[in-house]
């Protein structure tokens, strides 16, 4: 789901609200920790799933739900790099760029994606389909080079394989 779709589903850009199922999940999460605040990272994950990305209204929704200040939620959220952010494309292509991948050609992967998509790292294609990110070690160094497309790892990449993966995305 792109963020635009999520915004539309949530009834426009107004205040966000968790679904009933998500609220039940949040209650379950609370039961797993001695203090509610400890559930913040998992609740942010839920917000990511519910709203497509973490933006201002999503942060306010999480803060309201958990009874903590939006400033605190924002402060925690911005410490971490792996949540989907406002403006991220439908597919976030995270190319591992750390040493073991660099030794096995991850730069060619980045350059190929730059050429194919016409964007640089940190940018999103104008149609909102792809965001290209260079990320640090994905913990899959034996199968370098590696790209994580949303949740899925694609390993032992060649440029041909990479093209086939992108072509096959719905």
């Amino acid at each position: 789901m792109t963020q635009a779709e999520a915004t539309e589903r949530a009834g426009g850009a107004g205040p966000r609200e968790f679904s009933e199922a998500a609220k039940r999940r949040i209650e379950w999460l609370y039961s797993r920790y001695p203090v509610r605040e400890a559930a913040l990272l998992p609740v942010l994950r839920l917000a990511e799933e519910e709203f497509g990305a973490i933006d201002g209204p999503a942060i306010e929704c999480v803060a309201r739900e958990m009874g903590i200040s939006p400033g605190h939620v924002y402060g925690v959220f911005t410490f971490y790099t792996h949540y989907r952010r406002e403006g991220d494309g439908k597919y976030v292509l995270q190319v591992c760029s750390t040493l073991p991948c660099a030794l096995r050609g991850c730069r060619d992967v980045v350059h190929h994606l730059e050429e194919r998509l016409g964007i640089g790292p940190g940018e999103t294609t104008p149609d909102g389909r792809f965001t290209l990110k260079k990320v640090e070690c994905l913990g899959s160094c034996d199968t370098a080079p590696v790209v994580q497309v949303n949740e899925d790892y694609h390993e032992n990449l060649t440029l041909e394989k990479l093209d086939a993966i992108l072509d096959a995305l719905p």
Partner: peptide
């Protein structure tokens, strides 16, 4: 689940993160 921060592999950083903090 963590969310992309190498420092959370350090045990006290991990515990801060597990408490819902930076």
């Amino acid at each position: 689940r963590g969310a992309g921060a190498y420092i959370c592999g350090e045990e006290t950083g991990l515990l801060s993160s597990l408490e819902g903090k930076r």
